[in-house]
Computed example of a mutant assay.
Amino acid sequence: MTPPRAERGAALLTVLMLVSVIGVIAAASLESLKLQTHLSGNMAAIDQARQYALAGEAIARTRISDVSSTDRTTTLAGDWLDRPNAFPIDNGTATAKLSDAGNCFNLNSLVSQSDEGERVVRPMAVRQFEALMTLIGVQPRIAGEIAQSAADWIDSDTIPQPGGAEDETYARAPTPYRAANALMADVSELKAVAGMDSAIYERVKPWVCALPAPELSPININTLRRDQAPLVVMLLPDKLSLAFAQRMIDERPATGYSAVENFWSKPALRGISPPVEVMAQTKIKTRWFALEMQIETGGAELTELALIDGGVNPAKIVRRSWGDGA
């Protein structure tokens, strides 16, 4: 039996609608499949990049262990400092760069720590941090506030120093928070310290580090660059000028200093007697190394930043992060 003409038209319209819906579903499914395939490919490439980065770590640790166990000093010999070394990998490239991770102000040096874990403010480090910030252009009043507040952020007690800040200060923030009262795990914690703002943080960030020990900044006079002269001045801010510190670095022997005493006994420093603590924090051998790896493979890009402890044998990774850092 032949259906009426009107019903034949409705049936055709229904068929056309079904075809259209099926077409849309098929297109969406294909697009989803394409996206899933693309994401799977990216994940595989990133995973491969991480494996290359871990291999780079192993090579760096082996090299640092070899050098640290045989050399009494760490110098610029071999042109290794801050030098990007590129090497080919399957379907991409990798670049590794080592730097002296101790040539910075160690934020955790703002406290000293007892065997029981009690952390108390270390005035010498507070003065050094304040002097460093002033040298790089931070106003003295603000530099003092940040230095005192950063020490309060780390120490064990909840009593603010003169000019410092503890919980009651941070409780008044638009979004209240509390002081950490613990060693800093990353320099980005400095953003939360009273007196700090984004402009000052960007100025200070290249000069500071958060080593995993509350020790005075271990400045290696054999690996300092000329532009890092403020790190020398901060050791004796009332006795050394920036120009003088730059000249001291310029006049460093090509093979480096064989003893810390050789640096402080230079004729130009006659009459300047550094405290025992400053002598002790001046180094000729590097313990902490920073490794930066840049991996490009299969269309994926990956950056790894790692802190390596060369003071133990074999050298070990203390921490690592993936990405561009804080």
Rank of each mutant, 00 (worst) to 15 (best):
M1E: 11
M1V: 07
T2I: 15
T2K: 15
A10K: 12
L13T: 13
L18R: 05
V19Q: 09
S20F: 14
V21G: 12
A27I: 13
A28W: 07
A28E: 14
H38N: 15
L39R: 15
N42P: 04
A45T: 06
Q48P: 00
R50V: 08
Q51T: 15
L54S: 13
A55D: 01
I59M: 07
I64F: 03
V67G: 00
V67C: 02
S68L: 01
S68H: 03
S68F: 00
S69M: 07
D71R: 15
T73C: 12
T75I: 10
A77F: 08
G78F: 08
D82P: 03
F87W: 05
I89D: 11
D90K: 13
G92H: 12
G102D: 04
C104Q: 07
N106L: 01
N108A: 09
L110R: 11
S112Y: 09
E116K: 14
G117R: 10
G117F: 03
G117S: 09
R119T: 02
R119A: 01
R119F: 04
R122V: 10
P123L: 10
V126R: 07
F129I: 02
A131F: 10
G137D: 04
Q139I: 01
P140H: 02
A143W: 04
A143K: 00
E145P: 01
A147M: 08
Q148G: 05
A150Y: 00
A151F: 06
S156C: 07
D157Y: 03
I159E: 10
G163M: 05
G163T: 00
G164R: 00
E168L: 08
E168N: 08
Y170Q: 04
A173C: 09
A173V: 02
P176F: 07
R178Y: 07
R178M: 11
A180S: 06
D186M: 11
D186I: 14
S188F: 06
S188L: 02
S188E: 10
E189L: 06
E189C: 02
D197P: 04
S198G: 01
Y201V: 04
R203G: 02
V204P: 03
K205E: 07
W207G: 02
V208Y: 06
V208W: 06
P212N: 10
L216N: 04
L216A: 11
P218W: 04
N222R: 13
T223H: 09
L224Y: 07
R225H: 12
Q228G: 09
L231I: 05
M234P: 08
L236E: 01
L236T: 00
D238K: 15
K239N: 13
K239T: 06
L240A: 12
A243W: 03
F244M: 14
Q246Y: 05
Q246A: 12
I249K: 07
I249H: 00
E251F: 09
R252A: 08
P253K: 10
A254K: 14
G256L: 12
Y257F: 15
Y257W: 12
Y257N: 09
S258R: 11
V260T: 11
N262H: 11
F263M: 00
K266G: 09
L269V: 05
P275E: 11
Q281Y: 00
Q281E: 05
Q281T: 15
I284P: 02
K285R: 15
T286V: 11
W288A: 03
L291R: 00
E292S: 10
E296I: 09
G299I: 12
A300H: 14
A300N: 13
A300Y: 10
E301V: 14
I308Y: 04
I308K: 03
G311W: 05
R319P: 14
D324Y: 11
